[in-house]
Design a protein around this nucleic acid. Structure first.
Length: 272
DNA sequence: AATCGCGCCTGACGGC
DNA sequence: TGCCGTCAGGCGCGAT
């Protein structure tokens, strides 16, 4: 499930392979993703050139000479560059084919992802304009989280997964960061001290940076753009480890459902 | 304003 | 074997 490290891994994987290429054709086999894929990609993109690929949160922003393609990978989306695609599979929904016959292919079994098109500043797109800070930027720190969380009663884990608070922290990394910072996922966000938020912001940055370094986390669906899995799964401390010993104190890890999402924590190390 | 819960979608898995 | 129910989950959106 692509979170920020998986999206960044994808960006790094494809940028060298498609930058400066000229688009020859766009094929949309399945326009029904989370939102309808804009069909004018088919008419507007051919003849244009890829200029650069950026990332904002979990969105990939592909700049062309005529506008921006915005891609969200949802739960199960992936992007790959194929040198000479001569066949496709069931969930290969969109192909962007270049003049050298290579192809950027969007695959997404569950279709929770989305593709957007804009000729304006992509950061002003309705889905991006209210996003919180990048977790690996300097504006994201303990002071920021502390101020943002005042008077908030929601559990800290839900708070972290709110993209208006900070982008890119999904279920896996929220669990992992709270374990590193020794904070209970249930703790109301407004009751954590500034000191705790300093630890937490550092833990988030640590876990995300390590995950990017490992090429992301592959549980089931995620593959890097070269088809290899991410290797961060081997470094997970707590996610998916219910009934296993805590790596810090050996007490059994507990699983609870919080806002309909699986949450894992050590009841001894993450007591408050 | 803040919080909660629904629904989109497929594949995997367990039970019968 | 095969069918059916359940679960997983990012995240916008409507309800409270």
């Amino acid at each position: 499930m692509p979170e920020l490290p998986e999206v960044e891994t994808t960006r790094r994987g494809i940028v060298k392979l498609i930058r400066h290429k000229t688009i020859k054709q766009v094929i949309i086999r399945q326009p029904k993703l989370r939102w309808q894929v804009p069909l004018n990609l088919i008419t507007d993109l051919p003849g244009s050139q890829i200029l650069q690929i950026k990332r904002r949160g979990k969105y990939l922003l592909i700049k062309t000479t005529v506008g921006w393609i915005i891609i969200h990978l949802g739960m199960s989306g992936s992007l790959r560059v194929l040198t000479q695609p001569n066949h496709h599979q069931k969930h290969d929904h969109v192909d962007i084919i270049f003049t050298d016959n290579s192809c950027l292919r969007y695959t997404d079994p569950r279709r929770f992802g989305s593709i957007h098109w804009t000729t304006q500043d992509p950061l002003q797109h309705p889905l991006l304009k209210s996003l919180g800070p990048e977790p690996l930027s300097s504006t994201f720190n303990g002071d920021y989280l502390y101020e943002k969380s005042r008077n908030r009663t929601i559990p800290i884990k839900s708070f972290l997964m709110n993209s208006q608070v900070v982008v890119g922290v999904g279920n896996i990394y929220a669990n992992e960061a709270l374990f590193l910072a020794q904070i209970s996922p249930l703790k109301p966000a407004g009751t954590l001290s500034k000191r705790k938020y300093q630890h937490l912001s550092q833990a988030i940055q640590t876990v995300l940076a390590q995950a990017i370094h490992a090429g992301g986390t592959t549980l089931k669906d995620f593959y890097q753009s070269d088809g290899k899995p991410g290797y961060f799964k081997q470094k997970l401390n707590i996610y998916g480890k219910d009934n296993q010993p805590c790596p810090r104190c050996a007490k059994s890890i507990k699983k609870i459902i919080l806002n309909q999402r699986a949450s894992y924590y050590c009841p001894r190390c993450q007591r408050s």
